[in-house]
Design a protein around this nucleic acid. Structure first.
Length: 595
RNA sequence: GCGCCCGUAGCUCAGUAGGAUAGAGCAUCGGUUUCCUAAACCGAAGGUCGCAGGUUCGAAUCCUGCCGGGCGUACCA
């Protein structure tokens, strides 16, 4: 079913049109800023009154007169300069809860998108011969999260892991691997050794021209697809990616070989990209490089694309030495995704520093008419992960923090807490909980921050049981599950009571408060996905858990009388289902039955 | 220099087209446990929303200037 807020917005907007005769009125319904104003408020009358130069309160009165929301709300009230305040009827809330409970599709009565799109989401993007580090965390989990949202809404989502497996450094990787194979009789290669060797070659190459020559040779061999070079390259890719896949599994991120379509995939399309842009007279030579200068429809340089000297800034697609760059690959990828994958929308999840690159990239792709106007290109950017000192998170020696080490540490610290709080549980159970809590804490902390800003990474804060954290959410869930176990002990048939339930008995304020919030899950999902901002969902879930806690302290469930118990069992069950759905399905965070 | 992002409680952060008295959590102080997990709940205190103007019924939010921080700015990704 449609979110209530949408229904109200449509009806009030329609009434505004009816009253004023003006098309496209916007009711601007949003959640009430204060509970004393009700549940929702419409702000749209005031700007409209200004436009029509009329008294906003009088206009609001007319809008309310022409409005029928009696099936949903109490009589709308006009307040202040022209707000319309709306308060849900308890019967309406109860009815929605029953619908959610009875949803045959098991999706908490949340409607799918009206028109499903094919959406390509480009995220994670690790590099060959390097371990994933903290810099890959956000792209990987935010990208996965966005995919989960879109999939739940019924879109055809195509995950693309645009790995760095081609280009300049690959010659070094091949040489490094070759070197190791030569030196060792029985090479026991793993990613750590490969990374070390790769770094060693990078250093050597700087000083030793002989090495540099060899690396150049290997690069050329690889470009020419010589079997041995290709074999080493494939070896490096295999070693790197199998470790990445392990980490994805550990993080609950759905990325596997079928999603891995990296730079090398586009290597044979690059010449064509450059040729076509030349043919369209968009690509020109400048300082020896082949460039495209983004211009607007009038032919003048687009604002913002300027260099230090104030001259137009080019998107370089071929270096003066003939080599291609990431802009070239990205352009080839756009064409492939639109022409072959039939994308209606392409989403790039990368850090904010690449903003300019994507702005220019999108501009050039549109200039070349490779992207029609109805196709949406989005750069979903995010800030950096900082250490406690406010600088980007690094180890003491100044290295990037390895993602695996960071996750292991989170699990270790979570395990310590589990040991303290729940010593009686069996070891394997403790391990499971520690993993869910530790990994969940890292992911939840990331999601709950505003995507676009930097945030300070702190194990202590993300593992805290108070506040907007994964453990708090998981704890709320575990408490509900505990009620279920207690019900079994007491021979209470909770499932049977829930199944036969036809009307609710909501009387306590904390019951109604919780019920109203449960009914708004769909709104939270919509708000979150519209702006690709998971923190709107975490805020919702946190409030849900808080409201449940209030209800839990005030309202006994199992000891409630026969006329109250089914209602309370339903509130518990739907809260658990909503938390589980939000955490597991949409955020990819595990829940546990006890902790 | 130019462009983009940011500046909100002591700390870490929210604030969903410009809406009503700016919200959480941590830390601080005080209270709640014969009762379904106290890993919880309730309460108190804490603010010139960087500064100064402007736009209007209304500004943390939009505009201008300034101060402070981050990032980017032609052959890395």
């Amino acid at each position: 079913m449609k979110p209530t807020i949408v229904i109200l917005d449509e009806r009030i907007s329609a009434s505004m049109v009816g009253v004023t005769g003006k098309a496209d009125c916007e009711a601007q319904v949003c959640p009430a800023t204060d509970p004393k104003f009700g549940d929702y408020q419409a702000n749209g009358v005031m700007p409209l009154a200004k436009q029509l130069k009329t008294d906003p309160r009088k206009l609001a009165e007319k809008v309310v007169e022409g409005l029928d929301v009696s099936d949903i709300c109490e009589l709308p009230e006009i307040a202040g300069p022209g707000f319309i305040n709306l308060r849900l009827k308890p019967d309406f809330v109860a009815d929605r809860l029953l619908k959610i409970n009875a949803d045959p599709q098991n999706r908490l009565d949340i409607a799918k998108a009206e028109k499903p799109e094919t959406i390509v989401v480009d995220f994670s993007g690790p590099n060959i011969a390097k371990q994933m580090h903290v810099g890959h965390l956000r792209s990987t989990i935010i990208g996965d999260c966005i995919c989960r949202f879109l999939e739940f809404l019924g879109h055809n989502v195509i995950r693309q892991n645009h790995i760095g497996d081609w280009g300049l450094q690959m010659g070094m990787v091949v040489y490094a691997l070759e070197d190791v194979y030569w030196e060792q009789d029985e090479p026991k290669l793993n990613l750590e050794i490969l990374e070390q060797e790769y770094k060693r070659i990078v250093e050597l190459e700087k000083e030793d021209p002989e090495i540099a020559d060899k690396v150049r040779k290997r690069t050329a061999e690889l470009q020419a697809k010589e079997p041995l070079a290709m074999r080493y390259w494939r070896e490096a890719c295999g070693i790197t990616m199998s470790e990445c896949y392990r980490l994805y599994v550990m993080m609950g991120v759905n990325l596997s070989t079928i999603h891995t379509v990296g730079e090398s995939f586009y290597k044979d399309m690059l010449t064509d990209v450059v040729e076509e842009l030349k043919k369209k007279s968009l690509a020109v030579e400048s300082d020896g490089a082949i460039c495209v200068f983004p211009v607007d429809s009038t032919g003048s340089p687009q604002a913002g694309f300027k260099n230090k000297e104030g001259e137009p800034l080019p998107l370089i697609i071929q270096k003066s030495d003939g080599a291609y760059l990431y802009a070239t690959t990205d352009l080839a990828a756009i064409r492939y995704r639109i022409n072959e994958l039939k994308a209606d929308r392409i989403i790039y999840v990368t850090d904010a520093r690449q903003k300019l690159h994507f702005e220019m990239l999108f501009a050039v792709a549109r200039m070349a008419k490779w992207v029609s106007d109805d196709i949406e290109l989005s750069h979903v950017m995010f800030g950096s992960v900082l250490g406690e000192d406010g600088a980007p998170l690094k180890t003491r020696s100044g290295e990037n923090v390895k993602l695996k080490e960071l996750l292991d540490e989170a699990v270790k610290q979570a395990r310590k807490v589990v040991d303290e709080k729940n010593a009686d549980l069996p070891d394997d159970e403790k391990d499971r909980i520690a993993k869910a809590v530790g990994i969940g804490a890292v992911k939840y902390a990331d999601f709950s921050n505003n995507r676009t800003s930097d945030y300070v990474f702190s194990f202590d804060r993300m593992l805290a049981m108070d506040g907007n954290t994964a453990p708090y959410m998981q704890y709320a869930y575990a408490r509900i599950k505990s009620i279920g176990r207690k019900a079994v002990d007491r021979d209470i048939k909770a499932e049977k009571e829930l199944k036969g339930i036809t009307n609710l008995n909501i009387t306590e304020p904390s019951e109604l408060d919780l019920a109203k919030h449960l009914v708004r899950y769909g709104e939270a999902i919509e708000a979150a996905i519209n702006d690709y901002r998971p923190n709107y969902l975490t805020s919702y879930l946190y409030e849900l858990a808080q409201k449940f806690s209030v209800f839990y302290t005030n309202c006994p469930v199992l000891d409630a009388g026969a006329e109250k118990r089914p209602t309370r069992l339903l509130l518990c069950d739907l809260t658990a289902k909503t938390i589980e759905h939000g955490l597991k399905e949409l955020l990819g965070i595990e829940v546990v039955d006890q902790m």
